[in-house]
């Protein structure tokens, strides 16, 4: 094999010194994320999370059949509009309530190529109706989860 004449031309460039030459530019705009709660406890957690500072995240509640969501200010919004231009949807559930709405939103995300995540708010329990409801529709599930997990996930994906 040929020997590169510059350290940056080979894998040896993985030093702290060479890292200083990585191009520094602002991160691309934050992901457009929607967070949806499906039952009383989940909505409470979603509402609390909405009180933090976010880039483009928006927060809703949903009930069956799920074709219409409600903002934390209590305003109804059609699902299709809520999902317009969205990158990811985080679904939050503590019970099996709203299973039809979960399925409706999950299917709408699948059609639009939107990433879905689910948080199962069942402290101390690893199986639940909420898990069964979310599983088919969430590409990734956190079990069990709490509000802190929701905040951590949203911060990590720069919501």
């Amino acid at each position: 094999m040929t020997v590169p004449s510059l350290v940056s031309s080979c894998a040896r460039a993985a030093t702290a010194k060479e890292a200083a030459f990585r191009i520094d530019y602002p991160l691309a705009p934050a992901r457009a994320t929607r967070v949806v709660g499906f039952d009383a406890h989940a909505v409470e957690v979603v509402r609390s999370a909405a009180g933090h500072e976010w880039n483009q995240a928006q927060f809703y509640s949903a009930a069956d059949p799920g074709l219409q969501l409600v903002t934390v200010a209590g305003e109804p919004r059609p699902l299709a509009g809520v999902l317009d231009g969205v990158d990811s949807v985080v679904m939050v559930a503590a019970t099996g309530e709203g299973a039809e709405a979960v399925a409706t939103i999950g299917a709408a995300c699948h059609v639009r190529g939107i990433m879905t995540a689910g948080l199962v708010l069942t402290p101390g329990r690893l199986t639940s109706d909420a898990l069964v409801a979310l599983r088919p529709s969430a590409r990734v599930l956190l079990v069990p989860a709490d509000e802190d997990d929701l905040l951590e996930l949203l911060r990590a994906i720069r919501a």
Binding site: M115, A117, L142
Partner: peptide, 23 residues
């Protein structure tokens, strides 16, 4: 190793499927 000795995680762009790492 190509990420550097200590990767700058302020620059990364995680996605939801990175939930295991996030947790």
């Amino acid at each position: 190793e190509s990420m550097g000795p200590i990767v700058d995680r302020t620059k990364e762009r995680l996605v939801a499927t990175d939930a295991g790492i996030i947790k």
